[in-house]
Design a protein around this nucleic acid. Sequence first.
DNA 1: AAACATTGTGCAAAGGTTTGCATAAAATTG
DNA 2: CAATTTTATGCAAACCTTTGCACAATGTTT
Lengths: 347, 347
Amino acid sequence: MAITIVDVALKAGVSPSTVSRVISNDSRISQKTSKKVRKIMEELGYHPNMMAKSLVTKTTHNLGIILPRPAEELFRNQFFSEIIRGIVTKAASSGYDVLMTTGINADEEEAAVRRLVQGRVVDGIIMLSSRQDEHIISFLKDRKFPFVLVGRSEHHADIISIDNDNVAAAYDVTKKLLEQGHERIAFMSGPANLTVSKDRFSGYHKALLEAGLPLRNEYICEAGFTAESASQAAMDLMNLNNRPTAIITIDDVVAFGVIRTLWNNGMLVPEQCSVIGFNNTIMSEMCLPPIASVDIGIYQMGMSAAHTLISTVKGEGYGQARIIVPHQLIWRESVSVPDASNVKTSG
Amino acid sequence: MAITIVDVALKAGVSPSTVSRVISNDSRISQKTSKKVRKIMEELGYHPNMMAKSLVTKTTHNLGIILPRPAEELFRNQFFSEIIRGIVTKAASSGYDVLMTTGINADEEEAAVRRLVQGRVVDGIIMLSSRQDEHIISFLKDRKFPFVLVGRSEHHADIISIDNDNVAAAYDVTKKLLEQGHERIAFMSGPANLTVSKDRFSGYHKALLEAGLPLRNEYICEAGFTAESASQAAMDLMNLNNRPTAIITIDDVVAFGVIRTLWNNGMLVPEQCSVIGFNNTIMSEMCLPPIASVDIGIYQMGMSAAHTLISTVKGEGYGQARIIVPHQLIWRESVSVPDASNVKTSG
DNA sequence: AAACATTGTGCAAAGGTTTGCATAAAATTG
DNA sequence: CAATTTTATGCAAACCTTTGCACAATGTTT
């Protein structure tokens, strides 16, 4: 049988209430009593039962994370570990633990959320899912349960979200390429239904418009978040009559896939074609050639998500906010000025 | 005010006990009552308060993970996300959530463990730390608190651990290289104090012994878990009079670091030197050339850890076990038969 | 028809805290 | 020194479940 607060109270010759107040540093407790009680707690190795405490305070000091389904590609992506690292670091330093859950399918996922929310297992939730979880968002909103979304919701504006500005990021990349003299720039998107794909496309499109260049359908293609998925799309691009001199991809992994595919087909990056990634993961530095990428501060997003959620849980402001973490172009050797000799190549 | 079990009971015209029994599928409850109660629960949107439940059952259905400190390299390594993926997947499918905690330093880490264990926040713990946590292990053992260690403890034999056989893995790699004709094989270890470093060195040593080859100190060197840390060591090796024809590294990232360093200095892999990594992460496939690696089934280890811990928590056997997940050599282009022309090169 | 076994429910205690309110003791005031 | 304020502590209810035991209502056996 574990030591309880009454064991401590008994031995210290005070009431349980007093012990409780000592623990919570209640100002009404005298120095003397406090010291005495603390000593006994130490002696007995007492530690409060969090379940009992939670039951009465209706607070758990746990933050919930709804993970993308384990089978999803995202999970394997470095995005995942970076954001978790940010969340856990911030949470730990604020006295919170992080509880992760996931579901095999949408139904299970929703059941998990209900369990956490209605079972009062966590004080707040961070939604990490990359898919459309509008249903769950509605659920949380209806109950006014504290949560933040990492990413952006298309249907819900009045929530707290942490995101980078994908439109601006893609715009910046495209513009910089244009400035370097590239005119035939391809865009290799992620799955079309993802917000991130749509947003980045917007930015890309906008930059082209401003430069007075047409949007050419054959330069727009789609890949997953794996290197394999990039292969076919990359070859299709390079087989065009007017093949692009630069390809913007949705992720470093995809950028890598493109580079490898070109290499396997006797083409060099950046000589034959420049390639740009996203997320500035370890891989981008490691590739040969190193991949130019957009650092969207994933770790920062994690910190920010935890920080904002904790504030919300504590009732300190927010309630609605769209927090944007800044991005940064990291130019590396996978990009160069377009090669004049390559301009007229036909496939 | 949330819906409680007594709200349901009142509306259904039964006692709270009955509702509780309906929820737990107690066989004594009649079909009729059960159906009636379930209907009311649905109507009211009732969900049990897990804190209250935990308080009486002394069970939380949470598994705790003690993460390596956020600042540590390991956290960034793909090892991390893979093992988490394994753990969370298995846990979720068995009705458990996963609670992660970490500490900035050893003291905080221990405090976190105490909070989870003595505060009854989790039913069991998975130790993921790569460092010497013998202190914490003792703590858990003393209290007979269910836990499994991912990795191996040097001081504690009578615990449950999930590990791969690093000695055998390194032995197999070395032997295979020997069979291919390599005789000058270097071993680039991780930090010397880690068990994984020691074990792999043993395997390497053993294979050399069996082949009747001497252990040459200049072929043994140390790196961290980053590409940078490999640079100097790699150059030192290649500057030896009798430079190695193959280098076994502690991780794919390190292998990559070696490859890049050689490349930057005008040497090709595998032509000038074969390089082998460990962990078979995405990166190993992605590098140019693709890196031969040892797949130690990290995802499997995660699944296995969760599975074993859950069994233990439920009191189903175990108590002590050393579970070994099998490894597999993945041979890729970073390795080749040693080049005869390179054998006599001097630095 | 009486005695007994079976089945389905309810009562109340227990689990370990926190906290509003009451009260005792000490300090301050007139 | 009595009256009042301040300070420090204790009492007991509340948080929401689960579960051992008692009991009522059926069904079964002689």
